[in-house]
Design a protein around this nucleic acid. Sequence first.
DNA 1: GCATTTTACTTGAACTCTCATATACATTGG
DNA 2: CCAATGTATATGAGAGTTCAAGTAAAATGC
Lengths: 152, 152
Amino acid sequence: MHPMTRWLDDDEQRTWRNFVAATQLLYAALDRQLQRDSGLPHTYYVILVGLSEAPERRMRMSELATWAQSSQSRLSHAVARLEERGWVRRERCPEDGRGNFAVLTDEGFTALAAAAPGHVEEVRRSLFDVLDPEQIRALDDICATVRARLER
Amino acid sequence: MHPMTRWLDDDEQRTWRNFVAATQLLYAALDRQLQRDSGLPHTYYVILVGLSEAPERRMRMSELATWAQSSQSRLSHAVARLEERGWVRRERCPEDGRGNFAVLTDEGFTALAAAAPGHVEEVRRSLFDVLDPEQIRALDDICATVRARLER
DNA sequence: GCATTTTACTTGAACTCTCATATACATTGG
DNA sequence: CCAATGTATATGAGAGTTCAAGTAAAATGC
């Protein structure tokens, strides 16, 4: 396929390993905190956030999947779980018989409101508090670039 | 507990969401590539890399777990799977009856060697190729800082 | 020297994620 | 209008991760 691999040089390798280590530690810390304090994995938390910001706290399943960067299957399973806990409810879409809305319930909103402060604190402790303003700007820039590249 | 939550301001929120989006897209791309081309999740790949770099391609389980930033349980399950595929073998530790070595087999080394080029290409495509040298330096710095913060 | 604690690792169950497939409705082309 | 295709979502099985125990061997302490 490719004639030769462009291997990572030492600097690149160090950067890559720092990246993997930092991101994995960060997500591990986030997941531990959320799980401990609210019984939610981060992906589920993101789903609730998406719904909470949507008009009438409701979104079509596929729209929500896109928003949360989730596969439809993953979202479907996740919403099923959240529905069991009474935090989300499904509603058939009147305009499109195939469609479903996911609706954040009041209990779900309350749960999210309870989970948010601890989560934000963890994000600060783990990321923003250890970086200076310049680094934060640089990080935003880098992430926006990578994101744009990978979103298509 | 805490008197008031220090919420994220708009800039911080944008940065955080870019960070989550970028990292998740990146890991999704990596995992897809590795799974498709070698049937390995990224975490398993990392384990093989760790072993391949260790003296005699062997490491104590706990040492390997630390290296790969894995829980012992996760590593134990992972090595069990890799053992089934014949890519890793366990050996009792003579000095410590509780201990085990994970040893990379020749088949495992071959599999890793086959997986590496595609993986490195994906890392380049998704990350290094879209950033300029200054950004890469900044990213290294940021990740090293966050990593140090979260490693203790 | 033996009971206690600690360390190294494994195991099983519960949960999440992925992938392939299924279902049901919508749209399109003739 | 209806067959074919496409779209929105659900479901089930398989695989990975986590968490809580469990086992077995070492270290500790009196």
